[in-house]
């Protein structure tokens, strides 16, 4: 049986995020390089039809940060989006940025997630991210590196031979419409949920009492055969808490944007699959985590955002004159 491969998150940093970080750095943080809590948002995976070739082009598995990421209590994501929490650690010099102990920063974040699984049984921290950065304020250059820790199951999850199929093959139209309506009316914007055998949307904490539940998550991936990154930690969560019940799991990757007016205009985009876990050693020690974002060349290295070309020449002159 093929191994399930997950589409990694791709970060998208709005310029307003860097502007906000700059003013925070200048006015509030100054020389402090303490980690600051921020939030990011992601939506269901999107694809766009190329008008010239008729091909469906899959857009990236984006997770977005912007100016509002810094605002405390910002819990109103835009329509159809869900929130991921994370931290920014902004270093004062490029040398510190380079020589930072990335493994320990990363492991710290992974520990938080693991803790939330075992101790608090909390799903809200499952999708967590770390952003390390160095802001060259004079040149409007921002060096940054995202990490999205995910626990690597050993042995890896496998999918049965049918592979990922359209959700329509596993659920009736009525059932999907019902789920869609419940998600649309829900105020919580949950990233993870369960679908009971009666097609009710439930919290993940009901997993133990439900006999035939399908696990579901808002899937930022639009690739046909790759579920999005958040599923990895959901699987790790369930495996760690309910080892007896998780040798085989029904999964639905929810990809139909509930902020749009009607779902029935096109075919359902959500995917369905049955996953199975290999026999695993029962232990509560933390699994190893992976998830540093690769750069444009596919290497494990930081990225740089250069906002200088977009800056107004006049204001740049004025800034330099000070």
């Amino acid at each position: 049986m093929p191994i399930v491969q997950f589409a990694p998150f791709a970060s998208l940093v709005q310029p307003s995020f860097w502007h906000e970080l700059t003013s925070l750095k200048v006015d509030v943080l100054r020389l402090s390089d303490d980690a600051i809590p921020v939030i990011a948002t992601y939506t269901t995976g999107r694809s766009v039809k190329d008008r010239e070739t008729g091909q469906e082009i899959v857009l990236g598995c984006n997770v977005t940060v912007g100016a509002e990421s810094f605002r405390k209590g910002h819990q109103r994501p835009s329509a159809g989006a869900v929130v991921a929490q994370g931290t920014v650690k902004n270093f004062n010099t490029i040398e510190e940025f380079k020589s930072a102990d990335k493994s320990s920063l990363f492991n710290h974040e992974a520990d938080i997630i693991w803790e939330s699984i075992l101790r608090n049984q909390d799903t809200s921290l499952l999708t967590r991210f770390l952003l390390i950065s160095y802001a060259d304020l004079k040149k409007y250059k921002y060096y940054y590196w995202f990490a999205f820790p995910a626990f690597a199951a050993k042995p890896a999850w496998e999918i049965d031979d049918r592979g990922w199929v359209s959700a329509e093959e596993a659920f009736s139209q009525d059932a999907l419409n019902g789920i869609y309506t419940q998600l649309r009316q829900s105020q919580k914007h949950a990233s993870f949920f369960l679908i009971s055998d009666k097609n009710q949307v439930l919290g993940v904490d009901k997993f133990e009492s439900e006999t035939q539940a399908t696990i579901a998550f808002i899937d930022p991936s639009a690739a046909t055969n790759n579920p999005g990154w958040p599923l990895r930690n959901l699987l790790a969560y369930l495996r760690a808490l309910y080892p007896q019940k998780t040798s085989s799991l029904r999964v639905i990757c929810w990809r139909d944007n509930v902020s749009e007016n009607s779902p029935s205009t096109g075919a359902w985009k959500s995917r369905f699959g049955v996953l199975s876990a290999g026999a695993s050693v029962e232990s509560t020690s933390r699994l190893t985590a992976v998830g540093w974002e690769k750069n444009m060349q596919g290497k494990l290295a930081p990225r740089v955002a250069d906002l200088a070309p977009m800056m107004d020449p006049a204001s740049r002159l004025a800034d330099q004159a000070v």
Binding site: Q5, A7, S103, Y143, A152, A156, R232, W292
Partner: peptide, 28 residues
Amino acid sequence: ETPDLDDIPDMEEEGLEEGDEATAVAPK
């Protein structure tokens, strides 16, 4: 002024993470 890749500190970290069989390779 456009980003020059040489400017990015050469800090590829080979040992940071092992290859992960369950990570989908992004379409090139």
